[in-house]
């Protein structure tokens, strides 16, 4: 169920009941989606289970999954991937909410805001990652500028911000890329309903913090959560930024999957796909968990 605000009214798209006409109308789109998405998934699963006739493997086996899951590096990689996805999502979410609030407070013209925010949205992740590399690398632009300005003795003293232990460079790219997306989602809700409800809050004697906690957060929560889930799912599964800016060891799961899949040894290929499927499962699990938490919170709000 998606809920939101349109002109101050609570708009809810209810789960639509079974409707034969609707099914007929949706059938073509559903068929294409099932074929592309489900078919691909099924083929992938088949390969991950070892069915790779081209490489002389035909027997179905769960060995590739167990090998990945029992690999001593797996927990580290899983942890790193969670760190990248979760940290960047949380930081981007906090900064986006602050930015959206500031933009509504200062009544910045929404056309200007949309224009400025759309710039980062259109730049591919890969391009951002490469520019970060140029900027932040030990011999990069910032290091040289800092050295030139006498802030550090030589470019070599510049702190390691790419290929570093805490994945700082990766987080920076993701935060920079995802802020506009989350901000636009939050802004659209705020501009529709936030202002009026905040005035109601003021006349009902709610202080600034109370208005944020008890009015703004609940108003933006549904779209903020949706935006964060999308961002989390994307950053959890994307490989190009950690591939460019991450350390060679440990690898994030997507990088590991990519490496295995592209390995000259065809036998490593099912492992790569197995990792891909594990990533998909983790993301689905996260979505399910957040839906459940959301239900719980909602029940507490109304059913006290």
């Amino acid at each position: 169920m998606v809920s939101g605000q349109i002109n101050g009214r609570d708009v809810r798209t209810r789960a639509v009941g079974w409707n034969p006409r609707l099914a007929v109308l949706l059938a073509p789109a559903l068929a294409v989606m099932l074929l592309l998405f489900g078919g691909g998934l099924a083929l992938g699963a088949l390969q991950a289970l070892g069915h790779l006739p081209g490489a002389g493997m035909a027997e179905l086996t769960a060995d590739h999954f167990t090998r990945v899951l029992l690999d001593p590096d797996f927990p580290t990689s899983l942890g790193l991937t969670f760190h990248i996805a979760l940290t960047s999502t949380v930081i981007a979410a906090i900064l986006s909410v602050a930015l959206a609030l500031a933009l509504t407070r200062w009544a910045v013209s929404s056309r200007l805001v949309h224009f400025v925010l759309q710039v980062p949205l259109t730049v591919p992740h890969l391009v951002v990652a490469v520019s970060m590399l140029f900027l932040l690398a030990p011999a990069g632009l910032i290091a040289r500028l800092a050295a030139g300005a006498g802030l550090i003795a030589s470019p070599g003293e510049f702190p390691l911000l790419v290929n570093d232990r805490w994945a700082f460079g990766i987080l920076l790219v993701y935060v920079w890329k995802e802020i506009p997306f989350i901000t636009l989602m939050v802004l659209s809700v705020l501009q529709n309903a936030g202002g009026e409800l905040l005035e109601v809050g003021r006349t009902l004697k709610a202080g600034a913090w109370q208005r944020f906690r008890f009015i703004l957060l609940p108003v933006i929560a549904p779209s903020l959560a949706a935006a964060c889930l999308i961002v989390f799912a994307f950053t959890f599964g994307a490989f190009e930024v950690p591939y460019l800016l991450g350390r060679t060891y440990p690898m994030s799961l997507p990088v590991w999957a990519y490496r295995s899949y592209m390995d000259v040894d065809l036998a490593a290929r099912p492992e790569g796909i197995a990792i891909g499927l594990i990533i998909a499962l983790v993301v689905m699990g996260t979505v399910a968990l957040s839906v459940w938490l959301n239900r719980l919170a909602r029940g507490r709000e109304t059913g006290r």
Binding site: S3, Q5, G8, R9, D10, E196, L197, V200, I215, P218, V219, A221, E301, T302
Partner: peptide, 9 residues
Amino acid sequence: KALLFPFLD
């Protein structure tokens, strides 16, 4: 407008 909080009962 009534402007009730939609997220509260």
